[in-house]
Computed example of a mutant assay.
Amino acid sequence: MTDRHRHVAVFSLGGTIAMTSQDAGGATPTLSATDLVAAVPGLAKTGVQIKVHDFRRLPGASLAFSDLLDLVKEIEALDVDGVVITQGTDTIEETSYLIDLAYSAETPIVVTGAMRNASMAGADGPANVLAAVRVAASAEARGLGTVVVFGEEIHAARWVRKSHATSPTAFTSYPGPIGYVAEDRVRIWSQPVEEPKIPLNQLSNDVRTAVALIGLGDDGAVLRAIGTQVNGLVVAAFGAGHVPMSCVDALADLAKEMPVILATRTGAGPVLSGTYGFPGSEADLLSRGLIPANSLGPVKARILLQLLLMRGADHSEIAEHLSHVH
Rank of each mutant, 00 (worst) to 15 (best):
M1F: 05
T2Q: 04
T2V: 15
H5M: 04
R6H: 11
R6Y: 07
A9M: 01
V10M: 03
S12Q: 06
G14E: 09
I17H: 08
I17S: 03
M19T: 09
M19E: 14
T20Q: 15
A24W: 03
G26E: 12
P29A: 10
T30P: 00
T30M: 14
T30V: 15
D35G: 08
L36D: 08
A39C: 02
K45E: 15
T46S: 06
Q49Y: 05
R56K: 15
L58I: 01
G60K: 08
D70Q: 14
L71H: 09
E74M: 02
D79R: 06
D79E: 14
T86E: 08
G88K: 00
I92N: 02
I92E: 08
E94P: 02
E94T: 04
Y97D: 08
Y97M: 03
S104V: 04
S104T: 12
G113V: 01
A114V: 02
R116P: 06
N117Y: 09
S119P: 12
S119Q: 08
A121D: 11
A121T: 08
D124E: 05
G125Y: 10
A127P: 02
A132I: 01
V133R: 01
V133P: 00
V135P: 01
A136F: 03
A137V: 02
A139F: 05
E140D: 14
A141K: 01
V149F: 04
G151V: 01
A157V: 06
R158L: 13
W159M: 07
S163T: 13
A165M: 00
T166K: 02
S167C: 05
P168A: 07
P168C: 06
T169E: 15
F171V: 05
S173E: 09
P175F: 10
Y180C: 11
Y180S: 10
V181K: 03
A182L: 11
A182H: 12
S190G: 12
V193I: 12
I198K: 04
I198E: 03
L200Q: 13
L200W: 04
Q202N: 13
D206E: 14
A212L: 15
I214P: 03
G217N: 15
D218N: 14
V230R: 01
G232W: 05
A237Q: 08
F238C: 06
F238D: 12
F238W: 13
G239C: 09
H242S: 14
S246M: 13
D249S: 13
L251Y: 10
L251N: 10
A252C: 06
A255P: 03
K256N: 15
M258H: 09
M258Q: 14
P259T: 05
T264Y: 00
T264G: 15
P270S: 14
L272E: 11
L272T: 14
S273L: 09
T275N: 13
P279K: 12
S281M: 05
D284V: 00
L286R: 04
L286N: 11
S287C: 01
L290F: 10
A293F: 07
A293W: 07
L296P: 09
G297E: 11
P298W: 08
V299T: 14
K300T: 05
A301E: 05
A301L: 05
R302L: 02
I303V: 15
R311K: 15
G312T: 03
A313T: 03
H315E: 12
S316Y: 00
E317I: 01
